[in-house]
């Protein structure tokens, strides 16, 4: 097994074209879905933290339980909506990058939304009033509130990213593991291990570990004092 490990490191250091392509595909899908999920989650988190209303608790409980939804269940749900005979079948999304991004967006959204909500709830409670008194309102008011908690918001985003970069269920079911198209780090590891090609699988595993470690480093060292 030691020899396999050395050959895997060689694959990375030599900049093997396929390894690089797969790694960048994974990053692209994960980053796009995380950014889109954040765009959806920010208004919701802001709304939840600013206005008390009936049923708010329910939404938060729902968000927290969705955080733990298995990736294959999300994959299955999306699949049943975008397969040819399904409501959105005519869009031709199944087995395309778009399908993966939709699935990953749904994976990341609950995490990012609830973490943003708790980040924004921890602010100084008098901040909105202060802004009102200063005559700052609308988009600018919300922008300032978010910026006050920017590090916590960023760490919410990174947590969402961490969830999607390592998932295999959605990418496999919705992307179809198509070479040079929808093949990601995790689906390649599954495929190459099944073929007995441990070098390539291990090389991508190492890249994935490095990505996860960097995220955790950013989360716990970079943003700790936020």
């Amino acid at each position: 097994m030691g020899g396999v490990f050395i050959r895997a490191v060689e694959l990375i250091l030599k900049g093997n074209r396929e390894v690089l392509f797969i790694a960048s595909t994974s990053l692209r899908f994960a980053l796009t879905s995380t950014v889109l999920a954040t765009v959806c989650a920010l208004p919701l988190g802001l709304f939840l933290s600013l206005s008390p209303f009936k049923g708010k608790k329910l939404i938060i409980v729902l968000m927290n339980s969705l955080m733990a939804l298995p990736t294959v269940v999300i994959g299955l749900l999306v699949y049943s909506f975008i397969s040819k005979n399904a409501p959105f079948g005519n869009l031709g999304l199944l087995f395309s990058p778009g399908a993966i991004i939709i699935g990953q967006l749904l994976l990341a959204f609950p995490i990012i939304a609830s973490l943003i909500y708790s980040a924004l709830s921890n602010r100084d409670p008098s901040l909105p009033e202060t802004l009102d008194t200063l005559g700052i309102w609308g988009i600018r008011k919300y922008f300032i509130i978010i910026m006050e908690a920017k590090t916590a918001v960023l760490s919410a985003l990174l947590s969402g990213f961490g969830r999607v970069i390592g998932e295999v269920g959605v990418s496999m079911m919705l992307g179809g593991n198509i070479r040079w198209y929808t093949r990601t780090i995790t689906t390649t590891i599954a495929l190459e291990t099944s073929k007995g090609n441990f070098e390539l699988a291990l090389a991508l595993g190492i890249i994935l570990i490095v990505i996860s470690l960097s995220i955790n480093f950013l989360l716990h060292v970079g943003f700790r004092d936020a």
């Binding site: 692209r28 899908f29 980053l31 796009t32 995380t34 590090t151």
Partner: peptide
């Protein structure tokens, strides 16, 4: 770190689009 993160995200987003 913030600036780098924002830059990286926006780049990758544009790239993917």
């Amino acid at each position: 770190i913030l600036a780098a993160a924002v830059f990286f995200l926006s780049q990758s987003f544009l790239f993917s689009v």
